[in-house]
Design a protein around this nucleic acid. Structure first.
Lengths: 188, 188
DNA sequence: CCTCAAGTAGAACGATCGGTCTCTTTCATT
DNA sequence: AATGAAAGAGACCGATCGTTCTACTTGAGG
């Protein structure tokens, strides 16, 4: 291979991409491994080689989503914006996501609804993601105004959760509009 | 019987109460009808007499939750409060619910996450509930200030959704506190 | 050339799923 | 006392679930 460890596995990538798509669109418990295997175009044995159980596949799906969001937000944090503009950018990203045609709500909230047991690895992964997100938002608000940062930051996250949850249960345009306005009010 | 149509069915009531408890606590797709039957202390045949399919049982569970909320809020609406105080009372009810020891999030949002298909009866029931709730809240804000009512009302619902979604994924006390403060800010 | 991991192909496992069936018992209403 | 709906008890169905298995093929690296 050209460089070291670049080639992971074509089958594994397809498997995870397919699982992500179907799990997000239809829910985790509503989809069997047969569906994932069939639509990924691989074999049972291949799937179980890379993901020894469905539990692991689902957990990987959530952890990968977590990683992607962290990467995206992380890039924003290193840009030369003011903290307020960073928050605005994050809010706009959320609004865009809600308006995406295949938007089905927050992958993490949906997963938590399907796995309410706090001991479940998927549930834990969701909590880990949310803890990171809240801390990140609180950190940004802290740079704006140390006194009101806690309340404003938590309000921001609450609006995000509400917008993401309602985004696929109402008109997305309306929801994202309400969300962006509320965030604007929070930042002035 | 003492009066007309008071006696519905002891078994049916127990069945629905048990289903409500387990479905809400553990998720609908994670619980089989065997669990419901066993914990309700009834027979398979009895369950299928009252609820010809699991789908119907689940739909009834959501519709009953809908009815209960409408009844509770409806009682508030006929009390002699100002519209703003009615909204405050509704918000306080939500905050109390979040602090309830067995709180596992919004039953409607959780159900929607498990049944994303818009054609599913359960999904439809959730949409119906949410449409009623939004309209009710908008109506109250409309009585306060006709100009800003739409935005404020939608913001109220968005905060509610966020609070209910996050209430079991973080410290409930903190979440309900943030929610009530945000509502207070919205009403002044 | 040989090796060995990765992938294909598909049968098969026990468990559980939602749902149907028959038979008996209870019990309030006529 | 007779009737019939409601409920109990439990066997049974086909389908699907997640999972394991064996056997064959491919392809890149030593």
């Amino acid at each position: 291979m050209s460089s070291e460890t670049v080639k992971v596995s074509k089958a594994r990538d397809k498997l995870l991409a397919t699982a992500t798509e179907i799990f997000y669109a239809e829910g985790v418990n509503s989809v069997g491994v047969d569906r994932v295997i069939a639509e990924a175009g691989v074999t049972r044995a291949t799937m179980y080689r890379h993901f020894p159980s469905k539990q692991i596949l689902v957990t990987t799906y959530i952890q990968e989503a977590d990683r992607a969001v962290r990467e995206h937000v992380g890039a924003l944090l290193t840009s030369d914006r003011t903290p307020a503009d960073m928050l605005r950018a994050i809010a706009e990203n959320i609004a865009e996501e809600i308006n995406f045609s295949h938007f089905r709500g927050c992958a993490f909230l949906n997963a938590a609804a399907e796995f309410p047991d706090p001991g479940n690895p998927v549930h834990k992964a969701v909590l880990a993601h949310r803890a990171w997100f809240l801390e990140t938002i609180l950190g940004l608000f802290d740079q704006i105004d140390r006194d009101s940062s806690d309340d404003a930051g938590r309000r921001f996250v609450m609006l995000r959760d509400g917008a993401m949850a309602a985004g696929c249960l109402a008109e997305p345009k309306q929801v994202s509009r309400t969300f962006l306005r509320a965030v604007d009010a929070l930042l002035s």
